[in-house]
Amino acid sequence: MNHASALLSVEHLVVEYRSGRLRGPKRVIDDVSLTIGAGETLGLVGESGSGKTTIGRAILGLAPVTSGRVVLDGTDISRLGRRERRDRAQGVQAIFQDPYSSLNPSMSIAEILVEPIREGTQAEKRRRVHELLDAVRLPSDAGRRQAREFSGGQRQRIAIARALALHPRLIVCDEPTSALDMSTQTRVLELLREIQQRTAVSYLFISHDLGVVRAMSDRTAVLLGGRVVEEGTADQVAGDPRHPYSKRLQMATPVADPVLQAQRRQERQALLREQAAAGVA
């Protein structure tokens, strides 16, 4: 996709952290460029430590940008001051992995949902809370309860509702289903797809599971050691990966058939041995 036509354009992003007085900075994201179009889902996949969450945090303004640009709707949001970024941040929201820790346990669900809404009368805010609960298929009386009264899947629906509160153009979904069981995960993914069809919101969908990314994404980027090593359509990357690391991720994707799962495990172990002998990362 052309950077100029993208809703979000990450251009030559570098993120470094200081690792101590005597050591130089540690580079965790190294010259990453990505684009996301309006109404599109870009999957970002990699194992733990690959840097995928750091990219999401950099887009959200929660991680320092050492160099490069994060351009949203033509504005480099990585260079904005705190107040300017807060105003622009309405266009980018997040759904995190653990729905319970991301919800304030001392607040009712209605208070959580209405908190980011700055404008409107109390009646308008109450209507917005009802709209948000309806959008994620929760009853209207859920607003009177607290997060601890809900299951994990319901809490994630509440987190999705909060992300929708300010009508964002882009939502960073950071492992939003990895803490859920398989059936609940499927229902939450279906809800995210339904919301996208209805609102044309864009997603950056971050996961370690190539199968989940394939189910959600239009395009997929594979991250290894802070660098993109492969990018293509979701079907191509998951079905016919080119990079050795992408092939390992493909073989690590769980399948329902136990015989096929065991076969994949053996093939992955053989591939690891082959790649180690050849000195391939």
Rank of each mutant, 00 (worst) to 15 (best):
G46L: 05
L223S: 06
N104I: 03
L138S: 04
A262Q: 15
R144P: 00
Y245V: 02
S202R: 01
A277T: 07
H208Y: 10
L42K: 08
R21G: 12
A270L: 12
E47Q: 12
D240K: 13
G56N: 08
R82D: 13
C173E: 03
R155I: 03
A110G: 13
H208F: 06
G279D: 10
Q97I: 07
D134H: 14
R27K: 14
G211N: 12
R23G: 14
S78H: 02
A110I: 02
T177M: 02
V212A: 02
Q154E: 15
A270S: 12
A38L: 09
L204V: 02
I29Q: 09
A165E: 11
I171C: 06
N104P: 06
L103S: 04
S246D: 06
D73I: 02
H130M: 02
L249Y: 01
S48M: 05
M182V: 15
G43K: 01
V15Y: 02
I95N: 05
V70C: 10
V65I: 07
P99H: 06
A142Q: 07
Q197S: 15
H208D: 00
Q90P: 00
H243V: 04
Q266C: 01
G61D: 04
V255I: 14
R157S: 06
P139D: 12
G39E: 05
R57L: 14
R248S: 11
D141Y: 12
P254K: 08
L191Y: 12
S5D: 15
Y17P: 01
G68P: 12
R162W: 07
L103W: 09
R219I: 06
S108Q: 14
A281H: 12
Q261V: 00
L113G: 12
L60M: 15
E230M: 11
Q261F: 08
S9L: 00
V237S: 01
R219C: 07
L44P: 05
Y17V: 04
V10W: 00
P258R: 12
Y17A: 06
R88K: 13
A142H: 05
A161V: 05
I55D: 00
P258C: 11
S217E: 10
D181Q: 11
S50N: 07
L189K: 07
H208S: 04
L271A: 14
G232S: 13
S207R: 00
S246C: 10
E11L: 06
A110D: 04
A123Y: 09
S217L: 03
V92P: 08
R248G: 03
V129L: 05
A161G: 00
L271Y: 10
R187E: 14
G68C: 10
R88E: 11
L113I: 09
P99Q: 10
D98Y: 09
R157Q: 12
P105C: 08
V92W: 07
R198E: 15
Q185W: 02
L249T: 01
T75Q: 13
L103C: 06
S202V: 03
V70H: 08
R155H: 08
R155G: 04
D181L: 10
S108W: 01
D134C: 01
